[in-house]
């Protein structure tokens, strides 16, 4: 559904990523690892078209991204749920409205989707925090809310950048189980993570491939994982 071919990218002319080939197809489950600063977040941004590659091509749902108009990019993003590493909420709206934001911008009525919104918020364990502002949430609560927001439109592709960085092991496993469940339903999942335990746990339950960014290139991780 999202396919990167020979993609290159660098900030300010530097070469951060080279020859990136990656296909997120229905039912695929990827982990993305690599040292801090390797370019994991950058790669995810290339996948949802926040960044434009300096070389190569990004295809999204069968269309070359370089030829998409801004409105098409917006429509594409409704099919791609992203958990941003820094969460990126609207600070003036409470958690519930932030989670429901993709519905709002898609012109959906929140009243009509009330049950789904509340169910999802309860699932990530934030039912009692639904009316808190983002600034009043802990790091882990923010990450869980970000995951809920990424899933609210039931996207075909889920890109999660360190979704479990700030939550305890039990909650990490719970979130992972949710993502594996969604993956079984045919959604394509990519998780950027440093957490080797999480990756091992996932490999036990799902057909997960582990990719590693090293020196700007994407490679399959070895048997050490």
């Amino acid at each position: 559904m999202i396919e990167l071919s020979d993609v290159r990218y660098g900030y300010d002319g530097t070469a951060l990523l080279t020859d990136i080939n990656l296909a997120l197809v229905p039912g695929s489950f990827h982990f993305l690892t690599g040292p801090s600063g390797a370019g994991k977040t950058t790669l995810i941004k290339l996948c949802y078209l926040e960044l434009t590659p300096s070389g190569g091509q990004v295809m999204a749902f069968g269309r070359p991204a370089s030829r998409m108009r801004r409105d098409e990019i917006a429509m594409l993003r409704r099919r791609v749920g992203v958990v941003h590493q820094d969460c990126r909420f609207l600070d003036h709206m409470n958690l519930r409205d932030n989670v429901a934001l993709p519905l709002s911008v898609a012109g959906e009525s929140l009243t009509a989707h009330r049950a789904e919104i509340d169910e999802l918020i309860a699932w990530v364990g934030l039912a009692d925090r639904a009316h808190a502002l983002p600034a009043e949430l802990s790091g882990g609560e923010r990450q869980r809310a970000a995951l809920a927001r990424a899933l609210i439109l039931s996207p075909d592709v889920i890109l999660a950048d360190e979704p479990t960085g700030n939550v305890d092991w039990e909650m990490s496993l719970k979130l992972l189980t949710l993502l594996i469940e969604l993956n079984r339903m045919g959604k394509s999942v990519l998780i950027a993570s440093h957490d080797l335990n999480l990756i091992r746990a996932a490999k036990g339950q799902a057909n997960a491939r582990v990719l590693r960014l090293r020196a700007g290139r994407l490679e399959m991780a070895g048997a050490d994982l």
Partner: peptide
Amino acid sequence: LQVLRLVGAQDGF
């Protein structure tokens, strides 16, 4: 505006 774009808002909206 950035966040709205990221969650799929169109410019007109």
